[in-house]
Computed example of a mutant assay.
Amino acid sequence: MSTPESNRVALVTGGSGGIGRVVAERLARDGFAVAVQYAGNRAKAEETVAAINAAGGRALAVGGDVADEDAMGTAFDTVRSAFGGIDVVVNTAGIMILAPVETLDLADLDRMHRTNIRGTFVVNQQAARTVRPGGAVVNFSTSVVRTQLPTYGAYVASKAAVEAMTLVLARELRGRDITVNAVAPGPTATPLFLQGKDEGTVDKFAKATPLERLGRPEDIAETVAFLAGPARWINGQVLYANGGLA
């Protein structure tokens, strides 16, 4: 039996800023108690928590490296102790370093794979062990898996792995009434996306979609809220939230 909406609990990794913060605030508006996970910026995570609490929601901050199984085990335990359980896990934590395959520093490849692949695996492992029936796991990929832009090779490789493990986990949780999906945003106006891009480049990305604008974090948060709430018949899928980008 699903947990009543007013008693549902969500854990959002990378929830201290960017898309993660907007997702945390959106789920709080749907009545979720929200745990905001952060790796290094506790102050920003506490800002997100304060904003949710000020709006009448319930939230707490939990720290730890998503790729560290002990830290994540502690984080999940903390959330369960505080709120009584976990129903939804949204893994927005990730890093992006761009360079051609020919010149990418392999240390950067390792950093991305540690956070984006191992981190997703660790969080999904904890989610598989703890999410209650009627719950959902939402991972984050990228539309560049499909658009295949130059300089994105290593980043896309890490996100393609996220998509693969998402589809497998959905099938491994057969009979548990837990959905597992991934959201693949297109160009979205976040610090992660805008960093290092001049106005002309940003304009080009905006014009690439039929809607002729960049995505907003709120657009992505609505997709997550759909998967975390009413979308019980969507499972083992990758949703491209990109305004129609080919």
Rank of each mutant, 00 (worst) to 15 (best):
V168G: 03
F83N: 04
I86T: 08
L104Q: 15
G119K: 13
Y155V: 06
K197I: 10
G85M: 05
S143L: 06
A170R: 03
T166F: 11
D110K: 10
L104H: 14
L149M: 07
V88S: 00
F83A: 10
K197L: 15
T142N: 08
S143A: 14
A128C: 07
A184Q: 07
V183W: 10
E172N: 02
V89W: 07
G196A: 14
K159V: 12
R114Y: 02
R118L: 08
T190F: 06
K197V: 03
T201Y: 15
S141H: 00
T130H: 15
N116T: 09
A82S: 13
S81G: 15
L98S: 11
L194P: 04
F205T: 03
P187D: 09
V168M: 08
F205L: 07
A182Y: 01
K197T: 03
V180W: 09
M165E: 11
A182P: 00
E199N: 08
V162C: 04
T151E: 09
V180H: 09
A182F: 06
V145R: 13
A157W: 01
V168L: 08
A136T: 09
S81L: 08
L169I: 07
G175E: 03
L169H: 01
D177M: 07
Q125C: 04
N116A: 07
R118P: 02
K207T: 01
A154T: 05
E212P: 10
G186R: 06
Q195A: 12
R146N: 12
K197Y: 00
E212I: 03
K207V: 01
R132W: 05
S158N: 00
A93I: 04
F205P: 04
V88M: 02
D177G: 03
H113T: 12
L173M: 15
P191N: 04
P210L: 05
I178Y: 07
V131C: 07
V131I: 13
S141P: 04
F83G: 06
T115C: 14
P150N: 05
P191A: 09
R111E: 14
P187F: 01
D105M: 04
T151I: 05
F121E: 00
R132F: 04
G134S: 12
L167I: 10
E199K: 13
G175P: 03
V145Q: 13
G119Q: 11
A189N: 10
L169M: 11
M112A: 14
M96S: 09
D177C: 06
L211E: 06
N181E: 04
A157V: 02
T147D: 01
N124Y: 06
D110M: 02
G200V: 05
K159S: 02
E102W: 02
F121S: 08
L169S: 01
D203R: 15
T115G: 13
A128V: 04
T190N: 12
V156T: 09
F205D: 05
R146Y: 00
F140M: 11
A184D: 02
V145N: 10
S81Q: 12
A161G: 11
G119V: 01
D87H: 04
A128F: 00
E163L: 09
V123D: 03
E199Y: 00
T142I: 08
D108S: 11
G94W: 03
P133S: 14
L109F: 15
V183Y: 12
G84A: 10
G84K: 05
N116W: 05
